[in-house]
Design a protein around this nucleic acid. Structure first.
Lengths: 115, 115
DNA sequence: GTGCTGTATTCCTTGACCGGAATATAACTG
DNA sequence: CAGTTATATTCCGGTCAAGGAATACAGCAC
C-alpha cells in the first residue's frame, strides 16, 4: 500500500521540498506553506499524500498540526536501492582501475579479484 | 533535466520492473517486452522515458537494440537519500536503547518527563 | 455561545501520462 | 531492389493528478 504510493509521493518536486524541510526539523503547516510558496490547500493536499505514503506523521499542538518525517519508508527506498548500489560500486571499481594506471592507488572497500 | 525526470521515471511500476530486469543483465527490447507482458510500443515508450532520465543506455546490435543500466543516476538517488539515512540510523539507535532497557527490567513504559 | 486562527476537504478545470492501434524507420536477407 | 525483422513514433481516448477558489472543520479566546 505505502509501497506503491511511496515513489509517486516522492515523484513530485514540491513534496520532495516538503520532505527536505521536515528533515531539518518538524514544522507546522503554516511554516511549510510559507517556505514552499504554495497555497495552504495545496500544501495540505501534498501533506495528505505524504501521510498516506507513510512518509510523515502529524502531532496536534493546539490549533496547529506539526508534521514530522517518518524514517521508515526511507529505509524501504534504501533497501530497493541496495542492489543498484552494488552495480554502481562495480562501475566505480572499473573507473578506479583505469585511474590507477595514471595516478596512485585508490583503495575501494571491495577487494578486487585480479585475474 | 534528468534530475527532475529521474524520480518520475522511477515512479512507474512498469519502469521499475524494466530497471529490475536490466539489473540482472543487458537485454534487447524483445526480451523486455516478453518479460514485462507489455506491448512492444508501450515498452519502447517506457524505455524512452528511462533513456531521457539517463537511467539506461542503448547499444545497437544488428536490428536489435540492447538496453543496459547506467548506474550514475542511481548514485544521484543514493546521494539524495543519504541525509535521510542518517535520520533512520538515529531512530534505530533510539529503538535499540529502548529495547536495551526493556530487556533488563520487563517494563514497556519509557521514562516520560511529565510537565 | 460568538469570533478567530489554523488546517483539511470538496469542486472544478486543465494538463500530463498510459495503453492500444496503426504507422514509420532502420537494419539485415536474398 | 523487395521483403522481413526489430524497434520507434504518432495519434487517440481514457484516466489521473495538480492547483485555485470556496468552503468546512477543529481548537482556542472571550
Amino acid at each position: 500500500m505505502s509501497d506503491a504510493s511511496l515513489w509517486t509521493a516522492l515523484a513530485d518536486p514540491h513534496r520532495r521540498a516538503i520532505v527536505g524541510l521536515l528533515l531539518e526539523r518538524p514544522r507546522p503547516v503554516g511554516e511549510i506553506v510559507e517556505a514552499c510558496g504554495l497555497s495552504q490547500p495545496s500544501t495540505s493536499k501534498h501533506l495528505r499524500v505524504l501521510r498516506d505514503a507513510g512518509l510523515v506523521r502529524v502531532r496536534q499542538d493546539a490549533q496547529r498540526r506539526v508534521y514530522a518525517l517518518d524514517p521508515a519508508p526511507i529505509a524501504e527506498l534504501d533497501a530497493w536501492l541496495a542492489p543498484y548500489r552494488e552495480l554502481w560500486n562495480r562501475s566505480l571499481d572499473r573507473l578506479g582501475q583505469r585511474l590507477d594506471e595514471t595516478s596512485d592507488h585508490h583503495d575501494t572497500s571491495q577487494p578486487t579479484p585480479k585475474d
